[in-house]
């Protein structure tokens, strides 16, 4: 048959699911929930720009407070980015993290959310919390640590504000490929600045979803720690455990946040 190029489709892409597990308990009321909604709306836009490039991106959002609920209502609770738009979440209730972890475990299964016909790329799971869980989160984590998808996933957590428990989050994202729970502080980003949070969650979401497909450098492993380190930028502060602390000026991994002053540009022969 004679052929024409308009019959050609894109190359076959696997699906890459980006999960968000978001704390919408009462303590998030006011500016924090406003900032979260705004950040997620921008994040969806950023992910949409990369959709189809290296993978067909899918988004699944689980909010938890005194209960938990999949915000994304598409096929199996997973949304195609082309037709998903963010609807604002409300803050109310307690912080039942354990319940959310169990729900996540149920969903991370070939019969639930991982049904891709072309198979999946390693999923990305991003957590955000501003507090301490009010339920038996350890039991939930034990269950989740048995899940092979979760073991393989790139896992990153945001600790918002001083009340956020970085140790709990480090354990949640610290499930190894073998299923051990080893706190991974380097995959936790702590910030008090809502704008910095907004910037970072966008950068981290995009770079985590592209991590396995981007140019690779000698001696640099693809993983949550690298993604966090690169997003925070050179010279980002850490606490005594290694949690990356992001403030207003180091947000977004943009080095010009603090450098774009005349003094620092001297080396460029400013005239």
């Amino acid at each position: 048959m004679a052929i024409t190029t308009d019959k050609m489709e894109g190359t076959v892409k696997k699906e890459l699911h980006v999960f968000y597990v978001l704390d919408t308990s009462g303590s998030m009321s006011g500016a924090p929930i406003g900032a979260l909604n705004d950040a997620m709306r921008s994040t969806v836009e950023e992910l949409r720009k990369k959709d189809g490039e290296k993978a067909d991106l899918r988004i699944a959002v689980l909010e938890y407070n005194s209960a938990n609920r999949w915000v994304t209502q598409g096929n199996n609770g997973v949304e195609n980015l082309q037709d998903f738009f963010w609807t604002d979440l409300q803050a109310t209730g307690l912080t039942y993290l354990g319940g959310a972890l169990k729900e996540l475990n149920t969903s991370l299964s070939r019969n639930e959310k991982m049904k891709a016909e072309t198979g999946n790329k390693v999923p990305v799971v991003i957590f955000m919390s501003d507090g301490y869980p009010n339920d038996d989160w350890q039991e939930g984590l034990q269950v989740l640590a048995e899940n092979k998808w979760y073991r393989a996933a790139i896992k990153i957590a945001f600790a918002l504000g001083d009340q956020a428990d970085t140790e709990v989050l480090a354990k949640v994202v610290g499930v190894t490929k073998q299923g051990q729970i080893v706190p991974n502080y380097e995959a936790v980003i702590k910030t008090n600045d809502l704008q910095a949070f907004s910037n970072m969650i966008q950068v981290v979401s995009v770079s985590a979803s592209l991590a396995a497909s981007s140019s690779q450098m000698l001696g640099t492993e693809v993983g949550a720690e690298t993604i966090v380190r690169e997003a925070a930028g050179e010279g980002a502060n850490t606490d005594e455990n290694g949690v990356v602390i992001v403030d207003a000026t180091s947000a977004g991994g943009d080095i010009y946040a603090s450098d774009a002053t005349a003094d620092d540009l001297d080396g460029f022969d400013v005239i």
């Binding site: 076959v12 991982m114 016909e117 072309t118 198979g119 999946n120 390693v122 393989a152 396995a212």
Partner: peptide, 9 residues
């Protein structure tokens, strides 16, 4: 083979 369930490292 690329359609495997999950493309791990």
């Amino acid at each position: 083979r690329h359609l495997c369930e999950i493309l791990t490292p």
